[in-house]
């Protein structure tokens, strides 16, 4: 992702319930919200913003299945093809004793795969610095941000009016 110079108008709200109403109102007025920032997960916000459901669980399933196959096929290949050894009179391909490791690797692959996917799709990771609109957003402020790039002054005024009317305590503009 390229870092672009971007004008942002944002309002800070004091309460998540006021924020939720404002987000719904913005949707009614066909205002295009750039993003909403909150100090904790606000339930119902994704629906109000019409965000698609997260697809992380699919990644989890795929990585988990990969783990299952790696473990089971790996042990099968090792004990039937690569170096068959008889342990305690059991058959070479002793499936019941492969179950614990197969299970563990399923969980391990799914967990690592999902966590890595999560940080990748969110663009987060060690060394990443994202612009912070206001230091209090991770404390007690709830923020609605509008992209004000190439906006005419009257459009920006409309956004500001919207923020004031829906109960924003503070309204700021920032270029990122």
């Amino acid at each position: 992702m390229k870092k672009q110079h971007k004008e942002v108008v944002f309002g800070l709200y004091n309460d998540e319930e006021i924020l939720l109403k404002a987000v719904k109102e913005a949707h009614h007025q066909h205002l295009d919200i750039m993003d909403v920032y909150t100090p904790f997960p606000v339930h119902g916000l994704d629906k109000a913003m019409h965000l698609e459901e997260s697809r992380l669980h699919i990644a989890g399933f795929v990585f988990g299945a990969l783990g299952t196959l790696t473990a089971f096929l790996g042990m099968t290949w090792i004990f039937t093809r690569d170096w068959p050894i008889i342990f305690g009179g059991k058959p070479y391909w002793s499936v019941p004793s492969f179950i614990p490791i197969t299970f563990e690797l399923t969980v391990l692959f799914a967990a690592i795969g999902m966590v890595v996917s999560f940080y990748t799709v969110c663009g987060l990771g060690p060394g990443v610095t994202n612009p912070v609109l206001d230091d209090r957003i991770t404390d007690d402020k709830f923020c609605i941000a509008f992209d004000a790039d190439h906006c005419a002054p009257e459009e920006i005024q409309r956004l500001r009016d919207f923020l004031t009317r829906t109960g924003a305590e503070e309204i700021h503009a920032k270029s990122l």
């Binding site: 993003d35 909403v36 920032y37 909150t38 100090p39 904790f40 997960p41 606000v42 916000l45 994704d46 913003m49 965000l51 940080y119 969110c122 663009g123 987060l124 990771g125 060690p126 990443v128 610095t129 994202n130 612009p131 912070v132 957003i137 991770t138």
Partner: peptide, 10 residues
């Protein structure tokens, strides 16, 4: 990790 509190991230 550059966390911002974006709704999608949450």
């Amino acid at each position: 990790f550059g966390w911002t509190g974006s709704a999608k991230h949450w």
